Amino acid sequence: MCCRPQNTFVCIYCTICTLILIFFLSFIIFWIVISPSNLKFHVTDATLKQFNLITTNNTLYYNLKVNITVRNPNNNIIVYYRRITAIAWYKDNDFASITLTPFDQGHKNTTFLEAKFEGQSVIKLKAKQLGEYKQETSVGIYNDLAVDLDLRIRAKYGRFKSGRFDPPIVQCRRLRVPLVSNGNSAPPFSVTKCSTGSSFSDRNADAGA
């Protein structure tokens, strides 16, 4: 045994290590016992009023609004969203990001988010992607838009509240969004389920291991 009276430093070190080990084991057992369900994200609507790429200087002018529902399906977990960054993509090129208002979400609760992207950005499409863009423009429907949500959250179960952590990026991919212009109507948007990964784990944990 490492804790001997003649070696106070080693004894203190062993005690601290033991307490840390007990804490982490207790935390793991705690989450296994409550078995939290992953948070659920859906894009319920998307509106594209402008999506014009100037090929001479690779400048994209955009006006995109995306409505997202966030569902906490758990009976006994409160989720605190402390940072929400929405990132817009087109054919693997990110062209805009905005910060949404933080909020708290109770048990069995659904929250509605609205992300508005408007402005201009430089993107460089590959030859094949540029050809797809021109084809989609002629049809008036863009098939490869996406929105990611970069979150920082805390979770509370009873009186226990976790520290802040960054779960895996929420990926809302392959959005098929029609262009609405000059007051013309567009076909309805199909609700799209987003990929979440494990909502109550830190994506940086594996990287630091």
Results as ranks from 00 to 15, higher is better:
N75C: 07
F41C: 08
A46Y: 06
L130C: 01
S198E: 11
D144C: 00
L19G: 03
T47S: 14
T18S: 14
A207I: 06
L64K: 01
V66P: 02
D202K: 03
E118F: 04
A88Y: 01
V66N: 03
N75Y: 08
F189V: 06
F95P: 00
D144K: 04
F160Y: 15
R152H: 07
C3E: 13
D202G: 07
H42N: 15
A127P: 01
V43L: 02
L130G: 06
I12S: 05
I84S: 05
R159F: 13
L100I: 09
V122I: 13
Y142Q: 02
G131Y: 06
N57I: 06
G197E: 11
T18P: 04
Q171V: 10
N109I: 07
Q135G: 07
C14I: 01
F51I: 06
D206Y: 02
V180C: 10
R152V: 10
V79G: 07
Y90E: 03
N58P: 00
Y142F: 15
T192P: 01
A88L: 02
Y90C: 02
I34C: 12
L53Y: 06
K49M: 12
K40E: 15
A205L: 15
G119C: 05
R4F: 14
D166A: 13
T8W: 11
T110D: 14
C14R: 11
D150P: 02
L21T: 14
E132I: 01
R152F: 03
Q50N: 11
F165P: 08
G106S: 15
T55P: 01
I87M: 09
L149S: 10
S35W: 12
V139A: 02
I12F: 08
A209H: 12
P167S: 08
R82Q: 15
T44V: 14
N143Y: 06
K193S: 15
F41M: 09
I68H: 03
R174H: 11
A127K: 09
P167I: 07
Y90G: 00
F24G: 06
Y80F: 15
L64P: 04
